[in-house]
Design a protein around this nucleic acid. Structure first.
Lengths: 362, 362
DNA sequence: CCGGTTCTTGCATGCGCATGCAAGCCTATC
DNA sequence: GATAGGCTTGCATGCGCATGCAAGAACCGG
């Protein structure tokens, strides 16, 4: 009477199984599945037949162990409520999938420290790490460097360590928005920051306030929205309740800008842009819908992601390469949420963009 | 003269390195990092010191090779433009991270077949597969079953193979919306479908038209929005251009419903709900914002994700368990986008829900 | 027909870790 | 003080695959 074995231990066929069936060595099987390996056409065919018969598929884990390349890239993405990041994630995933990489996703808590999570990811011998919405502690950056793991910051930079990055034109965008709003005749500007220690928010603010200061304008009002819808709504409420209510708000991203629009319209009965001009940053998602029609400095998704994919692949090829900070140029997309300056609007493709008059020649 | 080695091959410390430094065997190191293993307190401390000194971290790939458990779960998610899915992804990720699993993300092209991608994921010996917005070909379902890999469909069911699933109350939701709209006195109903062969859209439509038919009402108009913003906009344009323009539209999800709202308001100058009632499905994202204030049948994210996490873990523990189809109850969240019936609204927590009058007693 | 190439192939080994097994040690018990 | 039992530990092995090496096969030109 034969013992009953649970069917669950249905072991996957291995290269040796295939080799036995095909009457070749295990090495031959390995070579049959390694592009560019030296193997006779006929042998490969025999192996492929046997593999098909057994439903064999090379075990990626075992392969990674010997090749020391996992073809896995760790990706951290938080703030998925902000439409920008799902779009980034999808584009990144597709771009890297096309190059044979897979993404190990992890979602750090905005509040908590991302380090422990990142540690786990490092245990996976990832070929690289992309941080799409988290800053890297300098400790971790050091570990990655020591371990030779390329790290790319997406839409962030780090002042702690010199880590490569891809960003939009945060500084220039901030400056341009200041100039745009002033040119539109606004008197009382306000800025709603994202998370204080994020380089993105800092740079956008620095550009904004920097331009204003350089041109003799009063510093803008300021509140903090933490990149979060509810917090940004609260910030908007505070700003709009002031006796010296601002006539223009620049929110550090579109996600917060839509929150401001909702509060301004539905809680304060303001009309946009008649009573309040609103400018965002990212040019993505609902902000483009007619209901919001948000004027926003674009971070062009495709070029940014393409650059990120290229950089990551390059860093994997050549880990010794120096760090690079790539800045992807964007433009101020003019829509209906902010009063338009008398001049400077240029139509471009199917959109309207704004440039300072002095640059029109270009 | 010693040969110069490129520093890049900075090999990670291995368990043997740690063992040597700590003066123990490699097994001891392994046990020190295996919870529950038999190891003396003092030995563990020595190992931990040595590990710290060398920056050692167990290699997850090697570990998976021997344990035959990768603690990786493959997740397919497409349609990330639909706010529901990023939210799902984030919640799933957090829930599974908390249980020690990591997500290998892949984003099938909506258009193309997901099979080749899924094949790659299988090569990773994933412990399970969650399909959040893709249907599984029956071929692949068979392969997974043969390989003993649990599969869970999230917000989908499959008619081909019996694969476990977690869904909302698509059928009941569709019925309830029909009843709600009829109770609200609407005369010409319309339905905008998602992707035709998605169970989600089919079930919602079946509930909707089923209730109407059972109660002697004319079948609704119908168009297809493919779960896509642009396509849904086009569908809305076609429906709203008809001489017998519908006075109520049920869009198969909120993402499409917002598209309808945009078109109705900004292209047709209609007011919602005075000229047109609009109902969606999901109760998520921008649909909740005041600008849309969408009446929508809720798919409660948290319970759905919790159920999915629990089911996946259970399936991993016990692969022989029978397939289950878990349906998470939801409610019709009443907001401002649809004319309200004279009775049936019940306030519940901080929201308004609708139930047929006959159920009020419950 | 032979030496030399170019291709293929199998052998052996190792990637880094987990684990069954048996040996060693320590404590408790009588 | 002897024995049984429980804890720890190291040894040896294997997970599934890739790859350097050398042997063998096929082929070429002279």
């Amino acid at each position: 009477m034969s013992e009953v074995r649970p069917a669950r231990a249905h072991r996957h066929a291995t290269a040796s199984d295939v080799a036995r069936l095909a009457g070749v060595s295990q090495s031959a099987v390995s070579r049959a599945f390694t592009p560019g390996a030296s193997i006779a056409r006929e042998t490969r065919a025999r192996v492929e037949d046997a593999a098909r018969a057994l439903g064999y598929r090379p075990n990626a884990i075992a392969r990674s162990l010997t090749t020391r390349r996992s073809r896995i890239i760790g990706v951290a993405a938080a703030y998925l409520q902000n439409h920008f990041y799902p779009d980034v994630l999808e584009a990144l995933s597709k771009g890297l999938q096309a190059r044979g990489y897979h993404l190990l996703l992890f979602t750090p808590d905005a509040a908590r420290d991302a380090d422990p999570l990142l540690q786990e990811v490092l245990a996976w011998q990832v070929d690289a790490l992309i941080l799409a919405s988290t800053t890297l502690s300098s400790a971790l950056a050091g570990q990655c460097r020591a371990a030779g793991i390329p790290v790319l910051l997406f839409n962030r930079t780090s002042r702690h360590a010199d880590v490569s990055s891809v960003t939009g034109e945060n500084l220039r965008g901030g400056r341009l928005i200041a100039e745009f709003l002033v040119a539109g005749g606004h008197q009382r500007l306000a800025f709603i920051a994202g998370i204080e220690n994020s380089s993105t928010s800092r740079d956008r603010e620095a550009g904004f306030t920097g331009w204003l200061a350089e041109h003799g304008h009063a510093p803008p009002l300021r509140d903090v929205g933490l990149y979060d819808f509810e917090s940004a709504s609260a910030a908007a409420r505070r700003l709009l309740s002031r006796p010296d209510r601002p006539d223009a708000i620049f929110a550090a991203n579109d996600h917060m800008a839509t929150a401001v629009a909702e509060v301004a319209r539905h809680e304060f009965g303001l009309r946009i842009p008649r009573d309040l001009s609103l400018v965002g940053f990212d040019d993505t998602g609902p902000a483009r819908w007619p209901s919001f029609s948000l004027t926003s400095f674009a971070q062009p998704l495709r070029p940014m992601v393409d650059a990120a994919v290229a950089m990551v692949c390059e860093m994997i090829e050549n880990p010794a390469a120096p760090t690079r900070h790539q800045v992807i140029p964007g433009e101020l997309m003019v829509r209906g949420s902010a009063r338009m300056p008398p001049e400077g609007c240029v139509s471009r493709a199917d959109a309207l963009v704004w440039r300072p008059v002095r640059d029109q020649a270009a």
